[in-house]
Write a protein that binds this DNA or RNA. Structure first.
Length: 475
DNA sequence: TACTAGTCGTCAT
DNA sequence: CGACTAGTA
């Protein structure tokens, strides 16, 4: 998905350049897309579970190509899945499994390549190569897209290289698409150049660019359907653009689109359904507002402060449920190991198996980080590599179990849950899967729990889209 | 005219 | 993931 058709829509505001335009500068790379392309060279082996690392060739070749033009890459890896994205992820992984089934049956090349999945293990192997070659990297806590935009906006990188149109929705200042591995030519989209974008008849797409720049452009992407939320059936980029051009706000555009949709279904006169339709409209607006927040405040890693921060400064404080939709925070020590050191699986927050073995024999860890951030970040704390407590509690996956005395209760892993009960973890560090136990705690323990700001509970995230779409289709 | 659903290519020999 | 296209309202 991404934003379907967006790159074509704004093509007039992009330009063909050579990558050497960025000579002497750093660029952020969407590492997953390079791993994905690399995996084509060994799709069959990967599908059959055979040992191979040929998928590393392509990314390494691309890195060499960039360096040959004096462009220094910073590879940005995907982190954990955002709760709002489960719908899209589920669709994609279902398609991959289906392809894998067919591949096993019919042994067709196409099915093998369709089944390609970039796994954390593959990312781990690339990360190791990057350390060997002193290549900079960042592991995003959640969306690599948001992380790349942060690096570009804060001047760590001059541009982002990707194939995903979401970077424009994130308002990335400079994005490079279609970088040719052979020639080094590519298509550059500068966000501010969008003010010159025209349609096929040559008229300006974004009149009063300032208002598009500050929000309407992203609103257009959301309304046309993004990874976090499907669109109203029949609404694509053109319609979203037209509605926002006329109405100039998400709220009014949604109202207008709903009216139009309902008119087209010729049911506007039904008085019984009217109240429910109003309800649907306001729910849709709320879902779109959540998407706005993700595109603006998604959780990213700030290499300078060595902390998880929102992509942009949060104007107002959000309630905890809204906050966690942007990507739950985690223990600072975990965030550092994950994002800067790249030694944790983003989903489980467990050390990669291979790394765990080497930690067991207590090797030096100084070479673990990327060169680029050495200057701004302190040394790795080896002690922090020991598996410790979980840092995030996601109530919808908590399996409530009775506490048993035999279980080792790690320090710190406490989250306020009910009045007198706290969730106390048993040392599993994944924000997505873990066991927790209801344990009554002493007052001191409660105080300690509240004082550890990084420990908290979140409500079950909604699986967006499905129910919403069904209700629309039911009209 | 615009949206949709489907197909194809991404590597690399 | 995007690009491209034939089919549809």
């Amino acid at each position: 998905m991404g934003i379907d058709g967006l790159l074509t829509f704004v093509r007039s505001a992009s330009s063909e350049v050579h990558i050497s335009k960025f000579a002497g500068q750093r660029v952020a790379i969407d590492a997953s897309s390079w791993l994905h392309r690399g995996a084509f060279s060994c799709a069959r082996e990967l599908a059959l579970g055979q040992e191979t690392d040929r998928y590393l060739r392509f990314p390494l070749r691309m890195i060499a190509m960039l360096r040959s033009h004096c462009v220094e890459p910073v590879l940005v890896f995907d982190g954990a899945k955002l709760p709002m994205k489960v719908r899209t992820d589920r669709l994609r992984s279902a398609a991959r499994s289906a392809a894998l089934q067919r591949a096993h049956r019919e042994q067709r090349d196409k099915d093998f390549t369709d089944s390609i999945t970039v796994t954390p293990a593959m990312a781990d192997r690339l990360l190791r190569k990057l350390r060997e070659s002193d290549t900079a990297f960042v592991v995003a806590p959640y969306e690599a897209d948001a992380q790349m935009v942060f690096l570009v906006e804060h001047g760590h990188c001059a541009a982002a290289i990707t194939e995903d149109s979401d970077l424009l929705a994130f308002r990335c200042p400079r994005t490079i698409y279609k970088l040719s591995p052979e020639t080094g030519y590519c298509r550059l989209h500068s966000f501010d150049d969008l003010c010159h974008a025209t349609d096929s008849s040559g008229s300006l797409l974004f009149d009063d660019w300032q208002s598009w720049k500050t929000g309407l452009f992203t609103d257009m992407c959301i309304l046309s359907g993004c990874d976090y939320l499907p669109s109203i059936p029949g609404v694509g980029l053109k319609t979203a653009h037209a509605a926002l051009s006329t109405h100039r706000s998400m709220q009014r555009a949604i109202s207008a689109l709903h009216d139009k949709f309902i008119w087209s279904k010729a049911q506007s006169a039904d008085p019984a359904g009217r109240a429910e339709l109003l309800q649907l409209t306001s729910e849709h607006l709320e879902l779109c507002t959540m998407c706005q927040q993700i595109f603006k405040y998604a959780t990213v890693w700030d290499p300078v402060s060595a902390a998880l921060v929102p992509l942009h400064q949060l104007g107002t404080s959000l309630d905890i449920r809204d906050r966690d939709r942007l990507g739950p925070l985690m223990a600072p020590s975990d965030a550092k190991l994950l994002c800067e050191d790249g030694v944790l699986d983003p989903t489980s927050l467990q050390l990669y198996p291979t790394v765990e073995q080497s930690t067991a024999s207590m090797p030096k860890r100084e070479d673990v980080r990327s060169r680029f951030f050495d200057a701004v970040c302190p040394r790795v704390n080896t002690a922090a590599c020991e598996p410790s407590s979980i840092s995030i509690v996601q109530q919808n996956v908590v399996r409530r179990e009775t506490a048993e005395s035999a279980l080792p209760l790690n320090e710190g892993a406490v989250a306020p849950c009910e009045t007198d009960t706290f969730l106390y973890s048993a040392g599993v560090r994944s924000p997505m899967h873990f066991k927790a136990f209801h344990v009554p705690l002493s007052d001191e323990a409660k105080t300690a729990a509240f004082e550890s700001a990084h420990l908290f509970a979140i409500d079950s995230p909604p699986c967006l889209g499905d129910a919403f779409l069904q209700r629309f289709r039911g009209i």
